[in-house]
Structure formats: structure tokens, C-alpha cells
Nucleic acid binder design. Structure first.
Lengths: 339, 339
DNA sequence: GATTGGCACTCCACTCGGGTGAGTGCCAGG
DNA sequence: CCTGGCACTCACCCGAGTGGAGTGCCAATC
């Protein structure tokens, strides 16, 4: 019995601390939450919780603050996702439905997520690896100069400029276009690249033209640089943490600029409906030991193409944030399904 | 004669204040700069400068700080652009030369500029209005569904999904493609849109298919939403202004999220080589009255297609910043020239 | 008339010490 | 096992005191 209450106390501490941002004392606890015991009892429970490492006090004779371990327990055992209100659902839907292309979808999701959670939102673009080729277009800009456009199933468009060693006429170009498309369209990107690599030998007459074009395409397909694309929004929400500027805000602000760091931070996509929470020092960067990351994968048909989530202080509203992240991921996935 | 010295004093005050970030007193001035007069003389000059509104003291018995008016005079009369070092030039060139497409160019420029100036860099994407149409591609995804891709001279690619009321076969599509390209390619975007609007009537047989396609194209061309695209980098440099957080950092951080605000802030593109400096309250937003904006236009052949620049505290290194902004703008313009 | 050294004055920034109060730990009694 | 009581701790607030950078002004000098 006492064990249950101890957990209730921990939950109460987390909730109070998150909303007040101040260490919470035993007296305030019994007043604000209806646990029918006295403050002395709560103090005893607190002593135990502290001994077990779930809470600490910044200094003797101050209230208690949850530790990373405390948040962890809270997230794993004590919290239930706040369901989104009807109004919020409508807002999400209407906000995202207006998107015109992939860029727009990603950007809108990012903004939306940052507004819902009042945190910094991070959305990774769908990775190339799982995309299929939808179409390849070759546009002649000059006789020996053309633009190669690669259109992928996720709606992503890559374009490269190619200088050819020889001039190519419209007929040759259109034949080449046909061949390339026949070889690549519908294939997963890695397979498409392989198929393309085999092409030039078969196209003897236009060999000189085909080779650089194919090279460029293969290059664009295997260019994992673009896997690192990321959108960020809500940095101004960091302004709310005016205190603890140096420990929280500054390193995070720096991390947001380094997309490689960010990618590592939001980590591998977690498949289907599950929301991952990484709390404080659980993450890979010690400078970010007072920030938490809440992420989930998204993509058509629950196949995680990329990750999306928010980054904020460990002292955050986990239930609300997790619910928002999950909700946005679902809507975005649905939109990618349609496209 | 005394007038000249007063200006020298102002210059010295600005330079010292920018580097030390602290109010500068008469004694420190004569020590650090070799103006061959006593501190008492400088005090007299300071009194005059203060009366004329070029400097103030935060409180009696503190050093002096330049006012907006003081910075203005400094920028207009007293400063000469610091030439970029050879190493810096090389760094700029090599950093930007690796860019593969327009997105990449813009992104790299932004990062580069923020690193050079250690400020927040803002780069506007080339506006549509002055672009010409390079190619229009129609890609059939399904019999009655296609992707419209609009490729512009600036390297920008816009894509839209179109649902057709009827199925269209490959022949019809390719004829339509030819017509559209014949009408639009090479034209400035507004003219192209006009030409396209006139098309459907002439294409009686595929009227039902042509109309929505043309509509989409015209829509994409006149979609000034995309004129508002902007890239930002270097927000972490704001961390250096740990003090004056509320007055400087917070409002700026908020402004950076609002691209519309940012666009207004960096203002109209100024043509050819000229760098515009807007100091403190000279700008359109009073919350940003302690930030300055240094911008210039860029684009192929000195035709300002867009604006690029940095935003920072009024207390900034104007000569260095202006030089960096100008240098980056030139390199970017050159790259756009080539593409 | 400009420049200079000297001097009194101002006022911020910092330090120190006592008082206050929230919060704790512990203990004895229910 | 819970509770009321009590002594204790320690961050925080406040006010006084102090040091020092910087100023303004004036009389003397070049």
C-alpha cells in the first residue's frame, strides 16, 4: 500500500514541478493534490524516493526536484497520454491539409508541432533509402548541357546540372529518357541505382552522353547528404527558459544549427505508433544533459521513413508532448499515404 | 581642427565599445588610441558629442555609449570596409563552389555568412517575379493524375500534383507538354502566366485536361508565398548576448521564426554593390530597436533578385560585417550567373 | 582660445551581516 | 504505520558601507 502512495507522490512531484518550475515541498504537495495523508508522511516517502534516486533537493532545506530516473519512471509507468481535444485535432488537420508539396508538409508539421508543444520541433525529411523512383526527366538547356530531374515517391525532387562531352539531339534524348525511366521507375532507390549502372554498356550509340547522365543520377540517388535534411521550428520557445540559459539554452541553440548533431539526437526512427522518450543524460551528448527528446517515426503505412519530434528541457510536460508528437506523426503519415 | 578630433573620438568610442561591450571612459580612450591629447580634452569633446546626440551615458559617472545616431555617423562617414583577407576569400569560394543546387547555394551562403560575421545570417531565395521559365514537365503518375514540374532560370523547381477529370494518354500529354513549353519557356514568369492563360481555348480536343494543368501552372507562377522563402543560420551566435537577453535576444529569436517579419526586416533589395545598414530604431519594429540589419541585394549581373544579410545587435562590428555581406553577395551572384 | 592638470562629486557595483521563512529530519505518541 | 511537534538548515532578501571609475568644472598654461 505504501508503495502505491510513494509512486503517487512521485507523480505529484513531477506534475507540480513541471507546472511551477520550482522545487516542490511536502506541504504544498498535500494541499494541491488530494492525497489524504499529512505532510510528515509525505516527507517520509520523499526520503525513500530520494534514497532510491528518483528525486533530489538542490540544497538542504529546499523542496524536491525529479531526477532523470524519476522522470523515466514517470514516463514509463505513471503517465497516460493526454488525448488531444477535438479542437486540436481539427487544428492539426486543417493546418496540414493546405500543404502543396513535400517541403510544405515538412515545414508545416514542424511549425505545428512547435506550437502544440511550445517546444522546439524537429522534423526529418523522408530518407531516400526507402523511396522509389517515380520519374526521371532530362531537360535540354543547351545542346550539350542538360538538367537531370529525379522525382521520388515521397514527393522529393532532386535536380542536377550536367555538362555533356557531346551534343545530343532531341530524339536521342527522348530515347535515353525512355530507357532510364524503364530501368528505374518503380524501383527502390538502391535497386534503381544498380539498374542504371548497368545501362551505359547497352546504349552503345549514345555512350558518351549516357555515361555522365547515369553517373549523375546514381550520384543523386546515393547522396546521403540529403538524408540529413531537417526542419526546425520553435527556437523562440527557448526564450521561456530565461533562467538556466547557459546550461540549457545555449548548448541546445548550438545543437539546432548542427543538423548532423540533431539527427543523431532524434535518433533512429521508431516504428509504428510508439513514441520514444530520451531523458537528459540518456542522450548521446553530455552538453545536452538537461534536455529531453520526444520522437516517433512517421511514413506511409507505418513504415518509418523518418523521425519527427521535439526537444526541450527535461522538465517538460511529457504526457502532453508525447500525445502531440504522436498525433502529428499520424496526420503526416496519412498525408504521405495519399500523395 | 577640433571638429576632426571630435569625430576621431566618436570613432574611437564606437570601436572600443564594440570590442569591449562596455561603456568607454575618457581615460581608457586616450590610452588605447593614440590621440595625442589629455583625457580632459576628450571629456570636453565627449560633452559636445553627447549634446549633439551621438553618445550617451547609461548613468552619471559611467563611460559613454554610442547612440543610434552615433552609429549612423560612424557607418556613413567614419568607417571603411575592412577588406577580406586572402584566406577568407578562398574560404568563401571553396565553401560555395561545392553547392549542387539552388537550395544548397542558399543554405551554404547562409551558414557561411553567419560564420564570417558571427551573427545571425538571413538569405532570401531569389524571387519568382524576375525568373524566366526554363522548362515545364508533365509526368503521368496515373491515367488521370499527373505531376506538374516547373523549372525556373534561377534553378528553382516547383512541383504540383494535379487530378484530372479525364484520362490522358501519353501522346496527348506530350503534345500538351510541347504546347505549354512553347508558350512559356524563356519568358519572364508573369508573361509566361499570361501566355498560358490564353492556351486552353486553342487546345479544344484536350480542353478538359488542359484547363486544370494550366490553372496549376499559373497558380504556381503567381504563388508569391514562395517569394517569402528565407534561410536563416547562426541563431546560436545570439547566445553570446547572454546579457540583455530580454531586450535583444528574445524578440530577435521570435522574429527569426516569422519569415514575413524577417522579410520586411531585411527589406527591399538594394541594387549593385551597395550595402544597406539599418540601425536600431530605424527599422520597422520597435521590439527590435536594439538590433541592426546589414543587407545587400544579389543576383546574376547585379540585378537584385533577392536580399541577403545579417541581423545583430546595434553594437556590432559594422566595417567587418558590411565587408562580409558584400563579399558573400558577390560570390553568390557569380554562381547564379554561371548556372 | 584651446588644452591641461587638479579636484570635488556622483553613483554603480560589490560585499557583508542579520533577519526571514520555507522546508527538512527526527522523535515520541497515537 | 501515521501524525503533530520541534529544532535546524540554508537560500533569499534587504540595507548599510565601501571602493573606484568616471565625470564636470575651474584655474592655469601654452
Amino acid at each position: 500500500m505504501q508503495n502505491d502512495r510513494r509512486l503517487a507522490v512521485l507523480r505529484a512531484i513531477v506534475e507540480d514541478y513541471v507546472s511551477t518550475e520550482e522545487p516542490v515541498g511536502s506541504k504544498a504537495l498535500v494541499e494541491r493534490h488530494g492525497l489524504g495523508v499529512s505532510s510528515a508522511t509525505v516527507r517520509n516517502d520523499m526520503a525513500v524516493l530520494e534514497e532510491e534516486g528518483y528525486i533530489t533537493q538542490p540544497h538542504t532545506s529546499a523542496g524536491r526536484v525529479p531526477t532523470d530516473k524519476g522522470y523515466r519512471l514517470f514516463v514509463d509507468k505513471l503517465s497516460t497520454l493526454k488525448p488531444m481535444s477535438q479542437a486540436e485535432r481539427r487544428a492539426i488537420a486543417s493546418f496540414l491539409d493546405g500543404a502543396v508539396d513535400l517541403d510544405d508538409v515538412v515545414q508545416r508539421s514542424t511549425r505545428l508541432l512547435s506550437q502544440l508543444t511550445r517546444q522546439v520541433a524537429v522534423v526529418q525529411y523522408p530518407i531516400l533509402a526507402r523511396s522509389t523512383v517515380r520519374h526521371v526527366e532530362l531537360v535540354a538547356l543547351a545542346p550539350s548541357r542538360l538538367l537531370v530531374v529525379l522525382i521520388l515517391s515521397t514527393g522529393r525532387v532532386e535536380q542536377r546540372l550536367v555538362e555533356l562531352p557531346v551534343a545530343v539531339d532531341e530524339d536521342a534524348l527522348s530515347e535515353l529518357r525512355n530507357r532510364v525511366n524503364r530501368a528505374a521507375v518503380g524501383q527502390v532507390i538502391a535497386d534503381a541505382a544498380a539498374a542504371l549502372r548497368a545501362l551505359p554498356e547497352q546504349v552503345v550509340p549514345h555512350d558518351k552522353a549516357a555515361a555522365p547522365i547515369v553517373d549523375t543520377l546514381v550520384d543523386a540517388m546515393s547522396d546521403h547528404r540529403s538524408d540529413e535534411r531537417i526542419a526546425v521550428a520553435g527556437a523562440s520557445n527557448l526564450a521561456r527558459y530565461g533562467d538556466s540559459f547557459d546550461t540549457s539554452v545555449r548548448p541546445l541553440l548550438e545543437a539546432l544549427e548542427e543538423h548532423v548533431v540533431l539527427l543523431k539526437l532524434i535518433g533512429e526512427a521508431t516504428s509504428g505508433g510508439l513514441v520514444t522518450v530520451r531523458i537528459g543524460a540518456e542522450g548521446p551528448y553530455e552538453e545536452l544533459s538537461s534536455t529531453s527528446v520526444v520522437t516517433t517515426g512517421y511514413g506511409p503505412g507505418d513504415e518509418a521513413l523518418a523521425t519527427l519530434g521535439v526537444v526541450g528541457p527535461t522538465r517538460m510536460d511529457y504526457p502532453g508532448t508525447m500525445a502531440a508528437v504522436r498525433a502529428v506523426a499520424r496526420y503526416v503519415s496519412r498525408i504521405l499515404d495519399e500523395a
